[in-house]
Design a protein around this nucleic acid. Sequence first.
DNA 1: TTGTAAGCGTTATCAT
DNA 2: ATGATAACGCTTACAA
Lengths: 336, 336
Amino acid sequence: MGPREMKKPTLEMVAAHAGVSRATVSRVVNGTPTVEPTIASRVQRSIDELNYVPNRAARSLASNRSGAIALVVPESASKIFTDPFFGSVVQSIASVMGDTDFTLTMIIESESTADKTRRYLTDGNVDGALIVSHRTGDHSYGELSEKVPLVFGGRPVEGPPGATCVDVDNLAAARAAVSYLIDHGRSRIATIAGPQTMRPGIDRLEGWRAVIEEAGLTPGPVAYGDFTTVSGARAARELLASGEAFDAVFAANDQMALGGYPVLREAGLRIPDDIAVMGFDDSPFSETSEPPLTTMSQPMIELGAEMARQLIRLIEDRTAEPLTVLQARLVERGSV
Amino acid sequence: MGPREMKKPTLEMVAAHAGVSRATVSRVVNGTPTVEPTIASRVQRSIDELNYVPNRAARSLASNRSGAIALVVPESASKIFTDPFFGSVVQSIASVMGDTDFTLTMIIESESTADKTRRYLTDGNVDGALIVSHRTGDHSYGELSEKVPLVFGGRPVEGPPGATCVDVDNLAAARAAVSYLIDHGRSRIATIAGPQTMRPGIDRLEGWRAVIEEAGLTPGPVAYGDFTTVSGARAARELLASGEAFDAVFAANDQMALGGYPVLREAGLRIPDDIAVMGFDDSPFSETSEPPLTTMSQPMIELGAEMARQLIRLIEDRTAEPLTVLQARLVERGSV
DNA sequence: TTGTAAGCGTTATCAT
DNA sequence: ATGATAACGCTTACAA
């Protein structure tokens, strides 16, 4: 601190200090290439010396750009709470944004605030938005895509036509999972599927079916759950009750797979000796279970980063990949 | 959409429409009480009719307030990822903010961006900030408290003197946990403590010690972990190896408690018959373990909400409780 | 290449 | 109680 209490420096003060016009300082600050290097560096020196930082509000008002990006996540209290998926994606996004000049505004959307959110997004408060969603076919944002740059991701889905999406290839991942089971000598593979109202649920079941068919195997029984542990247990019981034989079960997520553990064991089946269990998500639970669960790991960090990148491209270049598909990775542990 | 493409309405347009000055419209928008009801309602009608929404940037520039609040969370990739604690708190904060006119700006802080963050906070980009931290004694924000309203929370700690903090009463929670063990007939209680560099680690150990002392019991052995599952397993082995007898173990968090499960079992001890196990945190893991873990649940939603409330008070009234302490709740499950 | 000057949409200070 | 009228700090045609 100098002896005098110095006010926050403005662009004007920098201009004076450097002996140029405000316009020139503005150009330097914004990296306009048409500034003579000599002058540019002189201005830069003044900026550093005065410790100048542009005023966001003023800049935004004058340029009609906010410098902000919204991150919209569904409320689903339990989801964010329980789901490391969101946490990772959000963190990744925040991390990427931290390296840019954009500010990340977080919006938790509940049904009651849907309208408010839409307004917020279209009223020019942000330069673009990232929608990370669980629900499928949520076209409520469809029209928005035309008014403000939007990138859908997370576990999206039927992005509105024309929208930009980043998604994990659930179909391929499910195929890889089931193929792995087959490669490890299993031939009657049952599945605990997810809700068929959600894309991941649909795709993972489809992948299971496709691989089995292509391998010429007889499909094992199918039971449905809602991605919760208890629903997994229930589904496992249904599988057992079906009377059909099976030597492996592919669950659409780890929680359901793990929910099945105790009921399988109670039925006298040893994992993986008598029955192989394959999960999906690589949740924290999968590491500490007994036995540790072999599962498909989704590239969540990559997902978030890619979403951020696409949105920035969309904002700055008005262009982006309509669809980016990321591949999951198989994590071998002890349940197969 | 009307036939004419209508531009986004400005305060000026509303003024014209209502036949008053811009100043008056501004007053109505901001709820200034000195406006004649007749006029106020006329203006309000115009606002509704034109669908007017104030421009944040302009407002911010003119008022020198940003209408934004920063949420600063430590990077610790794994932390946010694994830790439902953060997720809940963050969600709760976002939820409360959603009901105000404040915007929530999320900042993930890594060591390399510490300076950038501090600058961001002090450069008038936000009206205040919420610091949710794991580390103890992080006084790097201490000075900041004088330049911008700050509220510390999460699992904070030694908030810089004079700062506003919201915390969970770990000491009381630990006491409650151990008392419960005693009430359920246990008399030799061991503990798997957390790092003594972190406030929660310190307080939970202290609570354990205090209750045992007051009850006139002989303390069981103590082992230390770092809040991870593996460290819990290791600590459990140490406890067993100590040769000291014990019929219960109080772990400073669920993960460590659960890490101890298998080693206790391998030692031929049944839970809770031979040994009671008490966790802390009420993590998702605690529900699905075998047996389900009895644990202390922290009021994370309340924590986030309270942080948000205090910060808003601080911003709007320049006043807030220096320290708000929230109580944890015991969740009875099957391990005691 | 650089400077001039007119906004950008509010708020806030004075008068009235 | 309401209305002029300066700011607020920056961007951006348009001139030079």
